[in-house]
């Protein structure tokens, strides 16, 4: 993917321009939107490769969560939320908004670039160490090519990260995967903290158990996580 196009949705003009400068100087092309309506219009007009989306876009427009939901109606484009420390990350990542990742403001530029690169890399396809295309354990069927998960023949709606985490553990059902192994498998380079992984694992468990399935990720204290069916 040459010079990916990033839609930067941020209501603060200084922050918006700073992110644009940072991205442009790192080889990205950018589009800017200062409110939700403009974001949706530019998204549908220009079809960017990634959306960097502030959750709070001010009082006179639809917020970032709603923008995300509307984009998700007909697009699987990667969406990275910008949040402010103190917002409920679990709620932001989960509940069907369909975001792929989040960054907490004030945003470190290296972290920003690393996360965007990782999200775009995931979009191009996960790295596979096995030739298997389907994995089945205890009623859970994972189709690695179609990137779908069914539980007792019912489709389970997972985000891209949740799918990659589940697939990583299910491909190695007898192994305990360390945090570092999971992070390397799903994100590649890592500049975040443990809470980030915990949030995604928590949401994965919630999605699967809500569909009547097992907890899937059993924490092995001091070591990591193991697939459970």
């Amino acid at each position: 993917m040459n010079q990916p196009l990033v839609l930067v949705v941020e209501d603060d003009p200084d922050l918006r321009e700073l992110m644009t400068v940072t991205l442009t100087n790192s080889g990205y092309r950018t589009l800017e939107a200062s409110n939700g309506e403009s974001a949706l219009e530019k998204f549908h007009t220009h079809a960017p490769h990634l959306v960097l989306l502030d959750i709070s876009l001010g009082p006179h427009t639809i917020d970032g969560l709603e923008v995300c939901r509307r984009i998700r109606r007909d697009s699987d484009v990667p969406i990275v939320f910008l949040t402010t420390h103190g917002e409920d990350i679990d709620q932001i990542i989960g509940f069907s908004t369909g975001a792929d990742d989040y960054l907490t403001k004030p945003v470190n530029h290296r972290l920003l670039l690393a996360r965007l690169a990782a999200v775009l890399r995931r979009q191009e396809g996960p790295r596979r160490t096995t030739e298997a295309t389907r994995i089945g354990h205890g009623g859970i069927d994972i189709d690695l090519n179609a990137r779908t998960v069914t539980l007792n023949d019912q489709l389970v709606d997972l985000t891209r990260i949740q799918f990659d985490l589940l697939a990583a553990m299910a491909e190695n059902p007898t192994r305990v995967l360390t945090r570092e192994q999971l992070v390397e498998r799903v994100w590649g380079e890592w500049y975040g903290n443990d809470h980030h992984l915990d949030v995604h694992l928590s949401r994965l468990r919630h999605r699967v158990t809500a569909a009547g399935g097992p907890r899937v990720a059993h924490a092995v204290r001091g070591v990591g996580f193991r697939f459970t069916s």
């Binding site: 603060d12 922050l15 103190g86 403001k105 004030p106």
Partner: peptide, 28 residues
């Protein structure tokens, strides 16, 4: 609330870490 929310995510980026942190605490 909206102003402190915005400043909490902004001031630190522009080198005003203490003010940004104070804005974040007031926001919370």
């Amino acid at each position: 609330p909206a102003l402190t929310h915005r400043l909490a995510g902004k001031l630190g980026v522009f080198g005003y870490e203490s003010a940004g942190d104070a804005a974040r605490r007031l926001m919370l």
